[in-house]
């Protein structure tokens, strides 16, 4: 039984996934604002109870590692590290970058359409983090160097530099970013992409990682930082 946790941004999401039956049992996504610490485990308790499961039934834990709010990412990762200590036997722990999860619902369709997919989140102060995906074999854990950061005009300039193919844009596309990309004929903002990232996709990616025996060390798991402090 796998519990997937995502509090990387103001959107929080949890999913419970049956690793033996390979199916999603429950998913809950909500606007957590800054209440992730207060709400996360209460929500997890309810999610497990709805599926007649107990915390002790968990054999795997998945978490988004960022980019995102430093605080939000650290809340989920710290919770996962603690949950792993309390479980016997030690559960598998899988960390997946936030934008990989954001991209997951559209990746296959984008590849089939020979279209580049770009996933983004708001990074605060009018800035964005984004990650471009091309082709079918997207890496499970893109590293910090693969990510981009900048303002809406900088993001639009990046997208405009991909003239040889169409670009689908998904994730946290706010009004400022909409305005910046509107003149770009090669860019399509995916309908209904909205702000919400769903942990069901995180759970699916984590299940793939477990099947490939590609799990992380709970001790060494840490956020994906795009810049150094100081």
């Amino acid at each position: 039984m796998l519990l997937a946790i995502d509090t990387a941004t103001t959107t929080a999401s949890l999913a419970l996934y049956d690793l033996e039956a390979h199916r999603l049992l429950a998913e809950w996504t909500w606007e957590a604002r800054r209440r992730q610490t207060q709400d996360l485990l209460g929500a997890a308790k309810m999610l497990l109870a709805q599926s007649d499961r107990r915390p002790a039934d968990l054999t795997a834990l998945a978490v988004t590692t960022g980019p995102g709010s430093f605080t939000g990412v650290r809340i989920a990762i710290s919770t996962v590290k603690g949950m792993a200590i309390g479980l016997i036997p030690e559960p598998a722990v899988i960390g997946i970058p936030t934008l990989r999860v954001t991209a997951e619902p559209w990746l296959r369709a984008a590849a089939a359409a020979d279209t580049m997919l770009c996933a983004c989140i708001r990074a605060g102060r009018g800035r964005y983090n984004w990650l471009g995906f091309a082709g079918r074999n997207a890496r499970l854990r893109p590293d910090a160097a693969a990510h981009q950061a900048g303002t809406a005009p900088q993001f639009a300039a990046y997208l405009a530099e991909q003239p040889e193919r169409a670009v689908w844009l998904t994730g946290e596309v706010d009004e400022a970013l909409h305005a910046a990309v509107r003149p770009l004929e090669n860019v399509t903002v995916l309908p209904g992409a909205g702000d919400w990232r769903r942990a069901g996709y995180l759970a699916g990616l984590a299940a793939q990682a477990i099947a490939a025996d590609d799990v992380d060390s709970a001790a060494e798991l840490q956020p994906l930082y795009l810049r150094t402090p100081g």
Binding site: A44, K45, T79, K81, I85
Partner: peptide, 8 residues
Amino acid sequence: NTAKGISF
């Protein structure tokens, strides 16, 4: 959050 995770 680590402590709450252990407790949970």
